[in-house]
Design a protein around this nucleic acid. Structure first.
Ligand code: ZN
Ligand code: ZN
Ligand code: ZN
Ligand code: ZN
Lengths: 144, 144
DNA sequence: ATAATACCTATAGTAACTATAGGTATTATC
DNA sequence: GATAATACCTATAGTTACTATAGGTATTAT
């Protein structure tokens, strides 16, 4: 392998993802189609490795593929305005905070239900009772 | 409509979900196939309404379809042991708590990144820099 | 030279719905 | 009783972000 060029497996290892994921990101237009070896295998550079790691970090922070596409467009456009980057990140943060709120509610409701249930072989389980009982406000869907 | 019997739209309204979701739950074997009108439309009873509401409450607490299937099996088996209900709920609670931990991490990292960025038109955005910068521990995937 | 490993494409599967198309039933209005 | 609006039906495809499989080729190691 010429130095500075690596196959897909090495690239994936660097970024901490699977080979299939890399091919998927190419299909999804997050990664540019790389050069190919004479026999048709993908060959990547250090720049590709940085890009893939960027994508993985953003994904691990919960940015959607669409959001990552947006961030990468700003990276690629070079004259990206800080403003739009910040806006994407802020809107995503709010997203995360909403999910946090929903999960905190779930946690407390689950905790309450579980603490009511002794775990014996009681005919009426307080957990099932809670799920059957009719508090209409429990029918809200959590915002995703 | 004979009293005590309703069409799918009314049922969905009671449980706070879409008609398609009800049909999906039937396909997924969470809801029993209901009786049909002479012309083939689904007709539901109050019991169906309670079951669907149970499903929706469990789903809103983040139980997976598979978990809900398990809970319903215990409901249907009548001699359900409290123990298994409790075990399902507890394991799900741990699940929720793991997601909470991941989201709290995301929240704090995002918050830090955003506070570095002034939002002007600076050539190097600290948010993008953070996503490009090479802290290998950032490559961990969050457990789902 | 041979075997093990890594790579290739194309396609289907995952979770939990949601949306669409094309058609029939029921209900309300005149 | 006719017509129109709404609700319902089935079957199929789309969504997200991958993951898995099948069947085949390339590269590397021995
Ligand atoms: Zn987001
Ligand atoms: Zn119990
Ligand atoms: Zn769970
Ligand atoms: Zn910035």
């Amino acid at each position: 392998m010429a130095k500075g060029h690596m196959a897909i497996g090495a690239l994936a290892r660097i970024a901490g993802c699977k080979v299939e994921t890399v091919r998927y990101y190419e299909l999804a237009k997050l990664m540019h189609p790389p050069e190919r070896s004479p026999a048709g295998q993908r060959r990547y550079t250090e720049i590709d490795a940085k890009r893939l790691s960027f994508i993985r970090r953003a994904r691990n922070l919960g940015f959607s593929i669409e959001e990552v596409r947006g961030l990468l467009a700003m990276v690629d456009d070079q004259e990206h305005s800080c403003d739009s980057v910040r806006a994407t990140a802020l809107s995503h943060l709010q997203n995360v905070q909403q999910r946090l709120a929903d999960l905190r509610t779930m946690e407390s409701v689950l905790g309450d239900m579980i603490s009511e249930c002794t775990g014996g072989t009681v005919p009426d389980c307080p957990i099932l009772d809670a799920l059957f009982s009719d508090h209409p406000e429990d029918n809200r869907a959590p915002s995703i």
